[in-house]
C-alpha cells in the first residue's frame, strides 16, 4: 500500500469527512499556572480550516500562536473549548489515530532531532510506532519525497546542514502519512536561500499529498507565500482573519495588523 492510498482510506473511514473541514477550533482558551500566577495565553480563539487549506497564524512572540498548535497536539493540557480534527472532537488524550492524522514540524531543526539517533532510526521509529510494514522501503521513499535521497539515511544530525535537518524533520512528520501538518516557524532558523528551498518543498508536498497546513510564523512574507488565510494574533486573541490577497494590498481593518504590515515592509529612516 502506498503512502497516499493509506491516507485516503484513513480519511474515507472518517465519519466527519463529509463536513470538509480539517480543523475546527471554537472558543479555545489556553492558560498556564494557577491563581494569581495564571496567564491566559490564548483567549477564546476560533477558526476553521477546510480540507486542503493552508492557514497562517501571525503575531509577535508571546501572542499565543504557538500555544494554539501545542494545545491542538496535546502538548499543553490546560485548555478549554472545542477542537475538531477531521470532524472528530478532541478529548484530553490524544490517541495514535490522532497522530496518524496530525503531525508537527518544529522551529529549530538543531533541537528537534535526537543528536545520537541516525536519520534511519528517527524515521523507522516513527514508522514502527504507527505499525507500518515495509519500513525499509518507506524510509527510502520518505527521504526521496523530501528531496534528500537514500544516501542520507545513515547520517547523524551533526553531519547534516540546517536545511537538511529540517528536511529530515519534515520527513519524520510525513512518516505516518498525515493529512494535517502543523508547522511551527519551520524556516525561521534557516538562511533565506535555504528557506526558499524548504518553502518550495512544503508547497510541492502539499500539492502531491493533498495536505492541510496550519502554520505559525512571525514573518508575514513567509506566511503570505504559503497560506491563503491569515489570522493575526495579539495578546492571546485573534484580532483579525483575512485572506492573503487583502494582506498583500495592505487592506486590513484592524490597526494592529496595519502596524505589523508596516513593520514588516522594512525599516524606514525618520
Amino acid at each position: 500500500m502506498s503512502a497516499n492510498s493509506n491516507r485516503h482510506t484513513a480519511s474515507n473511514a472518517d465519519p466527519g469527512s463529509q463536513s470538509g473541514n480539517a480543523i475546527e477550533i471554537a472558543d479555545l482558551s489556553v492558560w498556564f499556572g494557577h491563581g494569581a500566577d495564571r496567564v491566559d495565553a490564548v483567549k477564546s480563539a476560533s477558526f476553521v480550516l477546510p480540507r486542503g487549506a493552508s492557514f497562517g497564524l501571525v503575531g509577535e512572540s508571546g501572542s499565543g500562536k504557538s500555544t494554539i498548535l501545542r494545545a491542538l497536539t496535546g502538548l499543553v493540557k490546560s485548555w478549554q473549548g472545542t477542537m475538531l480534527v477531521n470532524g472528530e472532537t478532541l478529548g484530553r488524550k490524544r490517541g495514535k489515530d490522532f497522530y496518524r492524522q496530525v503531525q508537527m514540524v518544529f522551529q529549530d531543526p538543531y533541537a528537534s532531532l535526537h543528536p545520537r539517533h541516525s536519520v534511519d532510526q528517527v524515521l523507522s521509529e516513527t514508522l514502527s510506532l504507527h505499525k507500518f510494514g515495509d519500513i525499509n522501503d518507506r524510509v527510502e521513499k520518505l527521504l526521496t519525497d523530501v528531496g534528500l535521497g537514500p544516501q542520507y539515511r545513515f547520517r547523524y544530525p551533526h553531519q547534516l546542514s540546517g536545511g537538511q535537518r529540517q528536511r529530515v524533520a519534515i520527513a519524520r512528520a510525513l512518516a505516518p502519512s498525515p493529512s494535517i501538518l502543523l508547522l511551527d516557524e519551520p524556516t525561521s532558523a534557516l538562511d533565506v536561500s535555504v528557506q526558499a528551498e524548504i518553502l518550495n518543498l512544503l508547497t510541492d508536498l502539499r500539492e502531491e499529498q493533498n495536505l492541510t497546513y496550519l502554520m505559525v510564523s512571525h514573518n508575514l512574507a513567509v506566511v503570505g507565500h504559503l497560506c491563503e488565510q491569515i489570522a493575526v494574533m495579539q495578546n492571546g486573541e485573534i484580532v483579525e482573519i483575512l485572506p492573503v490577497e487583502d494582506m498583500r494590498q495592505l487592506k486590513s481593518s484592524h490597526h494592529y495588523t496595519q502596524h505589523l504590515l508596516e513593520a514588516s515592509m522594512g525599516y524606514k529612516s525618520t
Binding site: 533565506v192 536561500s193 528557506q195 526558499a196 528551498e197 507565500h225 498583500r248 504590515l261 514588516s264
Partner: peptide, 20 residues
C-alpha cells in the same frame, strides 16, 4: 541576485521561490 530572489515578498507573490 539569487539571495534577493529567494526571499518571499508580500507585494509580489510567486508560485515557486527561486532557489539559489
Amino acid at each position: 541576485q539569487g539571495l534577493l530572489n529567494s526571499m518571499p515578498r508580500l507585494d509580489t507573490p510567486v508560485k515557486r521561490l527561486q532557489v539559489l
